[in-house]
Design a protein around this nucleic acid. Structure first.
Lengths: 140, 140
DNA sequence: GTAACTGCAAAATATTTGCATCCTT
DNA sequence: AAGGATGCAAATATTTTGCAGTTAC
């Protein structure tokens, strides 16, 4: 696993406290984070605006990507694979637990190809499954 | 195709001007609509709040459903199939054109099943594909 | 007539922008 | 030292809530 500083360096971003804190949080978290989660965790004090800008920067660099949701929320997850700026290779399925509301990147489960009607040219596909995760279903 | 009034009646909703206008718009539109689209189209004048409340009601009744997006927008589409309140049977893929930004319900393309890791119990899956639609690619 | 729907006003949230200051390289 | 990043203030935008007046049945 790469260190926070290395990841920032690789993306030609200056190493600042805010970026280190936020990126560490993503590395520690095995799932997705919403803006609100990040603010809450880092209550130590990072300006709300800085969080917005940092997340935006990370998305642009391809360090994190956002996961589609049905409500109006935006959630972000670390790109496990090597994403280049603007070219995410994170074609895996995401799972959102209806009980604990945690989002998990199912890195091993790739988004299947689908056959589209004539005329539609696909470029990228996202798939989100919700249901119950292992932690919320001890009887499994 | 069912009439606006019939759909409302079937869902035990009183038939009001606002609901008729908004539902008509969905029936006319072969794609998805965002709150902003609706307000714009109905500039005739429906209060912004009424639009919010009407969309919420329609979603609860299963008349429309919302489509997951990667940005923070919420877009709604008519449930073509017979959705009962809370039980949507709309397991089809949605396509968002990167050029014209229109969203199309690919009613014929069902969301494929995926095999999840042990412990995860799926309940519902959504799939969104983006790329270029037929209208934006005359050469196709 | 009654219950439900709507519009208006306003509150609560969420997001963006400008600018001066501070930090990284 | 120079460019970029941050914090603060404030402007925008979005969504929710309360309530009184109106409409559908």
């Amino acid at each position: 696993m790469e260190s926070v500083s290395e990841i920032l360096k690789q993306n030609r971003l200056s190493i600042t406290e805010g970026r280190r804190k936020i990126l560490s949080l993503f590395l520690q978290t095995d799932g997705a984070l919403a803006h609100a989660d990040i603010e809450q965790e880092l209550q130590a004090g990072l300006d709300r605006v800085t969080v917005y800008r940092t997340l935006q920067t990370f998305v642009e660099k391809g360090i994190i990507h956002n996961i589609p949701t049905t409500d109006n929320s935006i959630i972000y997850a670390l790109c496990k694979d090597h994403c280049e700026a603007g070219h995410h290779h994170d074609n895996h399925v995401h799972f959102i637990c209806d009980t604990c509301h945690k989002t998990t990147c199912l890195s091993e489960v790739l988004v299947p190809d689908v056959r589209l009607p004539i005329g539609f040219v696909p470029k990228h596909a996202e798939m989100v499954v919700n249901g119950t995760c292992g932690d919320c279903r001890p009887s499994a």
